[in-house]
């Protein structure tokens, strides 16, 4: 009966620890603002998205009849970084800040006025130019924010965070309970069954390594394409970072599990040998 209870608590420890580890991998990666910002820097996202923005603006200039020079310096890399950080902050901090598009609009209007200052403009021309400016602003906003997806991500992340934190707390409590129970069940022979703690750790390590291997063998992370090159490259860095965490955690738990099992059994039989 004692032995059965030990294995039951070992399994409870294993299951609850698995969930705690998975939640903490998520909390330290995709659910972490700092992680995302680091990965954006690492993947040169701000420069890439700046290039994307410029390329997208170019798509509209050819048919506009305007000199391409009107698009120069309407947006800076610093502005793009600032706006991206606002969006990230909205997602992770629950803020509701709006990115400032008036700066872009004013810069573009000024450039257009300068390039056309000697030209007579009919009312129709002025309307068409204003429409062009609106299109450029929308293009900027859409490239930076991907408005269709950002609102879904905002609501998704905050609801996930709440649920995950609650589950994490419950699982940590279960981990503590199962560890205490295993200690209590071994209290008279506390050095004899240390190996029981190694079993769930080893099983967890193997599970994490298997997840890592399954992902890298079935998903071609580095060829995922989402929306544009800048975002795709950032996603590669983010996902690769998550996958590496599975490998690192898996390796640590596997090694720890084996060590505890080996040391536990050595201590157990050393004690038995001494007593005999």
């Amino acid at each position: 009966m004692n032995k059965l209870l030990k294995y039951i608590f070992a399994i409870i420890l294993y299951l609850s620890l698995t969930i705690v580890v998975l939640i903490n991998i998520l909390n330290s990666t995709i659910l972490s603002k700092e992680y995302i910002l680091n990965k954006l820097e690492e993947s040169n996202y701000y420069n890439n998205i700046y290039t994307e923005v410029e390329n997208n603006f170019e798509n509209y200039i050819y048919q506009s009849g305007l000199d391409p020079i009107v698009l120069e310096n309407i947006v800076s890399r610093d502005k793009i970084k600032e706006d991206t950080n606002i969006i990230i902050s909205n997602i992770y901090d629950g803020n509701n800040k709006v990115i400032d598009l008036e700066v872009v609009r004013n810069n573009l209007s000024t450039n257009i006025d300068k390039s056309l200052e000697d030209r007579y403009l009919s009312e129709e021309n002025k309307k068409a130019i204003n429409k062009f400016i609106d299109i450029i602003i929308n293009e900027y906003e859409d490239t930076i924010m991907n408005t269709d997806y950002s609102s879904k991500i905002n609501t998704g992340i905050s609801s996930i965070n709440n649920k995950i934190n609650m589950i994490n707390i419950i699982m940590i409590i279960l981990v503590i309970i199962s560890i205490l129970s295993l200690i209590l069940l071994n209290i008279k022979k506390k050095r004899r069954k240390l190996s029981i703690f190694g079993i769930p750790l080893l099983a967890l390590g193997l599970l994490l390594i298997t997840i890592y291997l399954y992902i890298i063998l079935n998903i071609d992370i580095n060829n995922i394409v989402i929306l544009n090159d800048a975002i795709s490259i950032a996603v590669h860095y983010i996902l690769n970072g998550i996958v590496i965490k599975f490998l690192i955690n898996g390796s640590i738990f596997t090694i720890l599990g084996i060590l505890i099992i080996v040391i536990g059994n050595m201590l157990r039989y050393k004690k038995v040998k001494k007593m005999s």
Binding site: I199, L206, I258, I261
Partner: peptide, 14 residues
């Protein structure tokens, strides 16, 4: 023997 049997249990759980 004890180590192997513990590892087998862990493998079984995994």
């Amino acid at each position: 023997k004890a180590t192997v049997s513990n590892i087998i249990v862990a493998l079984f759980i995994f």
